[in-house]
Nucleic acid binder design. Structure first.
Length: 188
DNA sequence: CCACCGATTGCT
DNA sequence: GCAATCGGTGGT
């Protein structure tokens, strides 16, 4: 699979379908998944965003150029992945919430999830575990491996459900969650 | 320095 | 419904 330049900026990957891939450059090989659920987070106008109170050590990548990985560590155990989506100086990112596995299923299972295949990547924390993400991945350029984005198969607008974001306590009314309705890999 | 807490998950 | 688990953040 060829890893290509992400289309920028400020896209929501469920609508402009994209595949996330990680090339481990070793015996483990390629891990990949089709993006089926995302959420948008912006900056000072979005109280639910990590960037709401301005630039800090943790969220600095959100203020950088588009097409980079913003990885954050939460609940003492989960690494979640965003794709930055704004020009430098403006905070904005797309949280990847669920993927359908496309490659590397056995490696993902070996990292501890023994559920059904279509549930291996059905949540932001599960993506982090299955892909082996860590804070070392924070700031990575998706156009310069090992993390990459590639064009996926088209999805009709009627197949995309728009709803409220999950797991937040502020700005809950904003319709910034995007999910492929027919996918069995969307989070719960 | 310290107390609080979270863009989650899985088990009861 | 709730515990696990810990680094970032903000207030003292």
């Amino acid at each position: 699979m060829a890893l290509t330049t992400p289309r920028l900026p400020r896209q929501f990957f469920v609508r402009d379908p994209v595949v996330l891939a990680r090339d481990l450059l070793g015996p483990e090989g390629l891990l990949a998944g089709r993006i089926v659920e995302t959420e948008a987070y912006t900056g000072e106008a979005d109280p639910a965003s990590h960037a709401f109170r301005g630039r800090t050590t943790r969220n600095a990548v959100m203020f950088g150029p588009a097409g980079h990985a913003y990885v954050y560590f939460t609940y003492g155990m989960h690494h979640c992945l965003n794709v930055t989506a704004e020009a430098p100086g403006t905070a904005g990112a797309v949280l990847l919430r669920a993927l359908e596995p496309l490659a590397g299923v056995e490696v993902m299972r070996a990292r501890g999830d023994h559920g059904p295949e279509n549930r291996l990547l059905s949540g932001p924390g599960k993506i982090g575990r299955a892909f082996g993400l860590s804070l070392d991945d924070n700031g990575r350029d998706f156009t310069r491996g090992p993390l990459g984005l590639a064009a996926g198969a088209p999805v009709a607008n009627r197949e995309v459900a728009i709803s409220r974001r999950i797991g937040i306590s502020r700005a809950v009314e904003l319709p910034y969650r995007f999910a492929v309705v027919s996918s069995r890999s969307v989070s719960r």
